[in-house]
């Protein structure tokens, strides 16, 4: 697959939040306001691109030669946890303003299934090193895009009247569902099936 194909696939067609359901917990959690959403989104892009590249290297250069690919779940999650910690320390030392902006979101990312998800999906799709990296960036980009859309909608929702039982999470899910409907337009084959 060409790089453009990978980018379009992961940003729009297979958007991690709206069609793959990866990374929903932070999505619902931090999409209340614009500021945290931006911070979280960029932190996720950063970690996802690095994680997909590094897990590819470990998979191709260590796990396959040693014949221990069944250990991939354990290895990947430890690598991601270590990477997040390392990135956190590196940013803290080299770029304090950036750390201030992203700092509190970094530890949360370890348990974001989108990061482990992209690493596992890249391995399953037999991507090369560069392809994995591009897939990581674009999946993170798709995450940021939807997170920003959602945050701006939820900021507006705050001033609207909402039935009491729908306040908070339920209305967020319904909004996300309607957004997912809109994102279905990006999949032409699916659209053809629906119309008949």
């Amino acid at each position: 697959m060409t790089y453009v194909g990978i980018i379009i696939t992961f940003v729009f067609i297979n958007n991690f939040l709206l069609s793959q359901f990866l990374g929903l917990c932070p999505f619902i959690g931090v999409s209340k306001n614009m500021g945290p959403a931006i911070g979280m989104g960029f932190a996720v892009i950063f970690v996802m691109s690095l994680a997909s590249l590094i897990t590819w290297m470990i998979y191709a250069w260590i796990l396959i030669p040693l014949g221990i690919t069944y250990l991939q779940t354990i290895t990947f999650i430890l690598v991601i946890a270590g990477l997040v910690q390392l990135v956190e320390m590196a940013i803290q030392k080299t770029a304090p303003p950036l750390y201030k902006a992203l700092g509190i979101y970094l530890p949360l990312i370890t348990t974001n299934c989108a990061v482990l998800g992209i690493a596992l999906i890249a391995v399953r799709s037999n991507y090369g090193a560069m392809e994995s990296f591009v897939a990581g960036i674009s999946a993170g980009g798709g995450f940021l895009l939807v997170l920003l859309l959602m945050a701006s909608i939820r900021e507006k929702l705050d001033t609207e009247w909402i039935p009491k039982v729908f306040k908070g999470e339920p209305i967020a899910f319904v909004t996300a569902g309607l957004m997912a409907l809109a994102f279905m337009a990006f999949d032409k084959a699916l659209l053809r099936n629906l119309i008949g």
């Binding site: 709206l18 069609s19 793959q20 359901f21 039935p163 039982v165 729908f166 999470e169 339920p170 209305i171 967020a172 899910f173 319904v174 996300a176 569902g177 309607l178 997912a180 409907l181 994102f183 279905m184």
Partner: peptide
């Protein structure tokens, strides 16, 4: 995908 999000939204409500 859209149905899943709608269902959980309404169930939570």
């Amino acid at each position: 995908a859209a149905g899943a999000l709608l269902v959980i939204g309404y169930l939570k409500a």
